[in-house]
Design a protein around this nucleic acid. Structure first.
Lengths: 203, 203
DNA sequence: GGCGGTTGACGGATTAATCAGCCGGGCGCA
DNA sequence: TGCGCCCGGCTGATTAATCCGTCAACCGCC
């Protein structure tokens, strides 16, 4: 029974990862966790063959979870997931014993290849790959401007107000809004804000 | 130096609690944490005289945090915060060694009285009180219908769609929307969704 | 040097949301 | 029995958001 545990605090990323991993040949079960604590709790009762885990998580961070997991079970195989911003975390996690990492900007195919590799070879280590998030099921790769506009929306500001705040015309804000809606797959600004929260793009 | 640590995963509730506790005579410092892990981490370096902690938290739950905290420091004084729904959690937390609990529906005055009491008397135990959330700084007491409408918004549905889903007329949905906006202090639906996430009303 | 992505901007059409006030029924609580 | 609150509904007016296409300038990269 080959099983994989996917851990990410963002519900959407978690689901996308779960679906992607489930298509890997040989994988019979994919379980999920929302944070490091849940991974550790689950690990006591039910060990998976491989863990995919986000580096940045609220509560127990990815790095600390790797440490505790490996001190409890030195044989655990862990692949870290990361976004471009925290390469430090990846370095620490790999130093702590993670087998490798995947950038969240890599393709689904690369994710599957890495998982296949890790499952096939128990000694496998460090194969940096990318995962284009557009292919993960959704694409939360917003530009800085788009995130600023999304943040403005989450604070209840109108397009005109956001424009004044960012020194842009209302029309430009509308354009940014339209583009970020399309990227997030949002049907309106309320949905966009919700997706922003679920993806962890805004707080 | 009398210091109090406030822990709640909802940013708005955390801030409201922080502000309320800061007005208690004798309290010189109020620190905050978003989850149990953060409490434990902080406790290592910087012990407070009293901890106010939500029972329901992602990751390390309140009960488990109480256990770990007390096993590390049997003298720690902890008051649990709770909503009506999980009285089980409160019972467990008190059994685990929490000094008492506060219902989130109690008044600010009662919160202050309980904190004063707990700080004055190191042996103080179990004084169930209520805290009317309206007096905590904001009042996210939405009715069931209002939450359903808010959830619909967070999924990108229009008022008409929400109405179809809940077997209500679009006009009624609009009324619920207007009322929940006022309660949350939201300026539009995007803001309402954001506040819903920050208060932990929707996921 | 050109390609792709980002940014900023405009115009016009259409639709949906928002605000305000009001009403009747039901349910629980004092 | 009344008071307050939640619910569901309706109307009319006003404003804002959304969608469409298009365009020019800039920047990093191969």
């Amino acid at each position: 029974m080959t099983s994989v545990l996917v851990c990410d605090d963002s519900p959407l990323a978690r689901e996308a990862l779960r679906r992607a991993v489930a298509t890997v040949p040989g994988v019979e079960r994919v379980t999920t966790a929302a944070n490091g604590e849940e991974v550790l709790r689950r690990w006591g009762a039910d060990r998976s063959d491989l863990i995919l885990m986000d580096v940045r998580m609220p509560g127990l961070g990815g790095v600390e979870t790797v440490r505790r997991l490996l001190s409890a079970d030195p044989g655990a195989r862990i692949i870290m997931l990361t976004v471009a911003e925290d390469l430090d975390g990846v370095a620490l996690a790999v130093a702590a014993g993670a087998r490798g990492y995947l950038h969240k900007d890599a393709s689904r195919a690369e994710l599957r290849a890495t998982v296949t590799q890790a499952l096939a070879d128990p000694t496998w280590r460090l194969a940096p790959r990318r995962l284009r998030s557009a292919e993960m099921g959704a694409a939360p790769t917003l530009t800085a401007r788009e995130i600023q506009v999304l943040e403005g929306m989450s604070h209840g500001r109108s397009n005109a107000e956001i424009g004044r705040e960012l020194f842009l015309s209302e029309d430009t804000v509308k354009t940014h809004a339209r583009r970020l809606f399309k990227k997030l797959g949002a049907s309106d600004r309320a949905h966009a804000v919700a997706l922003g929260f679920r993806w962890g793009l805004v707080r």
